[in-house]
Design a protein around this nucleic acid. Structure first.
Length: 427
RNA sequence: GGAGAGAUGGCCGAGUUGGUCGAAGGCGCUCGACUCGAAAUCGAGUAGGCGGCUAAUCCCCGUCUCGUGAGUUCGAAUCUCACUCUCUCCGCCA
């Protein structure tokens, strides 16, 4: 959520920044509503001031044994007036809130301007594109041939965009989860959390999924309860409504969770394999920081995510998203894209963002710099560290052998119970 | 799911015959005194949102907030209703 005072004071700048995100022409209404809000507010507060003083006067009169009836009647009339103005205010404030909650974050000055992903900027590449002396298969074929991924039975159980992992496939998924959590907790200083996989609507508003993107999520029928689309939601909302001590910052959190996405707008994209699923696993990284350090922390968070791909020896590149391609809550985002032979291209496997105070304002997460200071909003950052399913897909494709087997990357072997290679016989 | 109890400031905890209650007291924290320094002790201060004023995120003023929302009243932390959550007991259950 943008700061209403900032919009008021820097209308032209905010308008320009929003246009970089392809959002135009909403601020006029905001400004006029905001003006009438303050006008009415001043008026109603004046009346309340009178009411408060008069009510005390009534008390005094009664105590003194005098008749306060006249004053009481007058205040009653004013009470009616107050009520009408308050109702009016409530309507205006609801409209203002609606506008504020649907405005995206403003892009950081270092973000390339552009309408879509065509304006994204490659920052760096790591590793060499995997070279095959045979025709490599796509992970869905590899997985099906090895009988470690079962799409048909998943469809029987749940429908399209679900996968059953079997045998060494299930083990591999779990190995990657544990490996990632261990790296981030032991090497990068993140504290491990295991949050609920269902959260209420306030959380969804806090991180920016609601009110705008309701159709992308799974909601429990008849309840104010949603399946989380990412662990970013429970992790960032963990301290919703709280004032943290400065000593608590920066706070590094990590969690493994499944993620649930309806992805209403994605029909026809990545229909095969485990790239785009209604349920997938992810290890997430979240940071709460002071505003002054959040961009340093974004660089560190991104390199923490990169580190696990390096350890797996998977080739990837880092892309700086353009203003038009960024997510709703982000001020700046780096995507990590892993090399996928089946796409003959890099494919997103992590998205690392600094949301600055955008989510903190929505979720009301603050900290007190010193005991004397007023609370300030923290900056929130999040990044996949990294997506598990896409990691498994990348491993299958990049580590496949001519005979259809898949070699397990060194670092995962301790997590695989001694399995070094997945062959067809391995069940 | 059934029965009961409760939700107050960073924390604990008073306040429920409605009237200087945004709220006693304690703890914590900040500043000061004492001290070579510290502890102990003493003194002072210490909620947040919104708005007005303003160069100002300093003051000052107003207003709102005692789980959330609505209501009664001249006036509500205190009364009424609904909801949410927590705790205890029972039932069910991984």
């Amino acid at each position: 959520m943008l700061d209403a005072k900032l919009i008021r004071a820097n209308l032209a700048e905010v308008e320009a920044a929003l246009s970089k995100r392809n959002v135009t022409g909403v601020l006029d209404k905001f400004i006029s509503l905001d003006e009438s809000r303050r006008e009415i507010l001043v008026e109603v507060e004046e009346l309340k001031k009178f009411r408060n003083a008069s009510s005390q006067e009534v008390g005094k009169l009664k105590k003194a044994g005098e008749d306060p009836t006249l004053l009481m009647e007058k205040v009653r009339e004013i009470g009616q007036e107050i009520k009408e103005l308050d109702d009016k205010l409530k309507l205006i404030e609801a409209s203002l809130e609606e506008i504020l909650l649907t405005l995206p974050n403003l892009p950081h000055s270092s973000v390339p301007i552009g309408e879509d992903e065509k304006s994204n900027k490659e920052i760096r590449k790591w590793g060499n594109i995997t070279d095959f002396d045979f025709e490599p298969l796509a992970h869905w074929d590899i997985g099906t041939n090895l009988d470690i991924l079962d799409f048909e039975r998943a469809a029987e159980l749940s429908g399209a965009r679900f996968t059953v992992y079997k045998y060494a496939g299930a083990r591999l998924e779990r190995a990657v989860i544990n490996f990632y959590l261990d790296v981030h907790t032991e090497k990068h200083g993140y504290k491990e959390i295991l949050p609920p996989f269902m959260v209420n609507g306030d959380c969804m508003i806090g991180t920016g999924q609601l009110p705008k993107f309701a159709e992308d999520m799974f909601k429990l029928e008849g309840r104010d309860m949603y399946l989380i689309p990412t662990a970013e939601v429970p992790l960032t909302n963990l301290y919703r409504g709280e004032i943290l001590d400065q000593a608590d910052l920066p706070m590094y959190l990590t969690a493994y969770t499944p993620c649930f996405r309806a992805e209403a707008g994605s029909h026809g994209r990545d229909t095969r394999g485990i790239i785009r699923q209604h349920q997938f696993n992810k290890v997430e990284l979240v940071k709460l920081t002071e505003p002054e350090t959040s961009y340093e922390e974004l660089e560190k968070l991104t390199s923490d995510a990169e580190r696990v791909l390096q350890l797996l020896n998977l080739p990837y590149r880092v892309v700086l998203l353009s203003s038009g391609d960024m997510g709703f809550s982000a001020a700046k985002t780096y995507d990590l894209e892993v090399w996928m032979p089946s796409y003959n291209d890099y494919k997103e496997i992590s998205s690392c963002s600094n949301c600055e105070d955008f989510q903190a304002r929505r979720a009301n997460i603050r900290y007190r710099p010193t005991p004397k200071d007023r609370p300030r909003y923290v900056h929130t950052l999040n990044g996949s560290g990294v997506a598990i399913g896409r990691t498994v897909a990348a491993i299958l494709e990049n580590y496949q052998q001519a005979d259809g087997s898949v070699i397990i990357p060194e670092v995962l072997r301790p997590y695989m119970g001694g399995i070094e290679i997945i062959k067809k016989t391995n069940k």
